[in-house]
Design a protein around this nucleic acid. Structure first.
Lengths: 200, 200, 200, 200
DNA sequence: CGGTAAACGAGACGGTACGTCGGGTCTTAGC
DNA sequence: GCTAAGACCCGACGTACCGTCTCGTTTACCG
């Protein structure tokens, strides 16, 4: 049914993923075409269609290759004991990456593809976002264990509260993405919107 | 330079925008084509190319028409005096809209187009998101004035803290978009992640 | 029914015809468009559509203007008494004109338009070809009267026999159009294909 | 450089040429479009653009297919020994063909395309007109060998003298194309315009 | 170790949509 | 009331890619 993965050419696979990344960095994402990827990779179109269901899936695998190549298996957030400082540090790095012309555009391309395609979104949640989100949860959990976070806190909501505003602002360009902004997001999220000491 | 707007056919303009909305509701956004819009609207393709720079711009104008047609000029958030209840109410309505097959897909389409195109994003921020965000800020400002929100609070950050997580989860499909989730976002954002009564 | 010719702007008429000639000389005939003529002439498209039924009709009128402007009313072929010499002279002039980049292309354009459009062909026969053919016939008739041409000769066929081969070779490019060729056509036509003195 | 002809689909090629002929017979040549041919042939437009440089080239190939399909390789003119009778016969057949609504319009279309395009004209001279002209020359050469044509006669000029007037009258519609006319052309061409027995 | 079946590069194929050009009609101002 | 200007609907242009489908050519497993 599915092609025998054993016979698959690793060289072609890597060539395709590399070509996809190269092209999405060089030019507009809108101009990324399977035909173009195949040509750049020196690969027949059929080879792409044989192994990937969509352009987005190629892009997704390309990111997977990147993220696996970049480090070990499980990402970990820094833990100096100072949660606020750690989060600020991490978000600053994220912002830098998003603003980096080498990483931003491909990430944007992938995000767009995910917004299009629910299946891809599921894969993303499982394979790329999942592990990272787990690392974030872990860091928060540790903070919670030492009493730096509220006891009943839903950690998933907490993660969203910190990263959601940043990612949304980045993707929709509703405002400039600066470290000043992300710092403020962290401190505000930790403290909450209400005045301290308010009762209701 | 730009075509003389005076000679423009209002009938054609409305036909195009209506057709675009209809089509994006009926089918996949990926299948939305200028050719299709023109055919559905009973309009020449050139008429679209003459007045709009891109498919996204058409979609944007279509939303503008909707939002202007929908009500008066300036949107206002409800104010019962109970900020939390009001926010929960508004977010629930938002979630309902996003999950509505009539409104969700077009919004998603526009969001994707905005993620693509910085110029369109700027127009969006100014014309569509802007007024709405101002209404949100207004509601929070009133709450701030009666001491329900912290004094030094940056209201833009506050808005992002409440809507950012929801929009991000919706667009990226990182999780199900339920009222339970949004209620939790509101209460958590108001309270903050830290335990109440903590000093640092 | 037909537009009132009295109100017609002579300036516009001349501008259109001149523009048509200019354009057909400058570039490929295939690129000649009513839109282009109107723009070049500084005239609205409607003005052309109001007064001419087709692009070919404009071209035709342009030639009419040329031919009327060029000389008096009725063209006359030279008559030195030596028919063969006169014909050779005339055909050489014709060849020169056809090979002239200023005159050849417009003539070709008109010929093509005539081949397309029977109505235009009729107008051509009546207004442009007719008078010229009459002059040719006249010259032959005079030769016939002084015994230089056969008595029962059909002069129309005779005209075709001399000019037909040349025009056909020019339009279809079945061979190079040289004076050597046309000279040979004239002498051969006058003498006939059979050997002199043959009985059959 | 040129596409690999080996992989070319013969079925598509024939479908295109047949469709082109069908369409040019059915309707106005001016309405013949590559889009229309592709649709009728059940073929993608690109397949036409891949193999033919222009609409005229398609038409040309269609004729080539016809003429090769029609008979053997080299056309031959009848030779009963009576040159005049043979020529009259052939020209009558030609006239019938040109006036035939099945053959005339496509031929006219091709002629027009040839008048437009020098490259096509060259191909026409070589592949279609060439063989036919050779057959004509052959027939005349045989007549010349038996003393029915003048010794020094240029056979190419002779061919033009017989067929040129007819083709020119047909294409430019300078007069009706009847067998009476073509018969007269043949006899006049053979005899010449001058009176028999004239010295100059 | 030679045969064979899958994957491979290449690229033609039927299609859809692109963005542009020009056709011919209609409307608006202006002289 | 014709004119210049130009928007309008329409259809074709020639191009770019889509996803499918042969082609021969490696390549790697299996008998």
């Amino acid at each position: 049914m599915t092609p025998n993965t054993a016979r698959r050419s690793e060289a072609s696979r890597r060539a395709v993923l590399t070509a996809a990344l190269d092209l999405v960095q060089e030019a507009d994402y809108a101009k990324l075409s399977i035909e173009g990827i195949a040509a750049r990779a020196g690969v027949g179109k059929q080879t792409i269609y044989r192994w990937w269901p969509s352009k987005g899936a190629v892009l997704f695998d390309a990111f997977l290759m990147l993220s696996e190549g970049a480090g070990g298996e499980a990402p970990v957030l820094p833990d100096t004991g100072d949660l606020e400082a750690d989060l600020i540090l991490v978000l600053r790095a994220t912002v830098e990456e998003l603003n980096d012309p080498r990483f931003g555009p491909p990430m944007r391309a992938l995000s767009i593809e995910i917004a299009h395609d629910p299946e891809l979104a599921a894969a993303y949640v499982e394979r790329l976002d999942g592990p990272l989100r787990e690392a974030k949860r872990q860091r928060l959990r540790r903070a919670q264990q030492v009493g730096q976070l509220a006891e009943g806190l839903d950690l998933d909501v907490a993660v969203d509260m910190i990263w959601g505003p940043v990612l949304n602002r980045w993707l929709q360009r509703t405002g400039p993405l600066t470290t000043a902004y992300t710092d403020l997001v962290v401190t505000t999220a930790l403290t909450g919107l209400r005045p301290r000491g308010s009762s209701s």
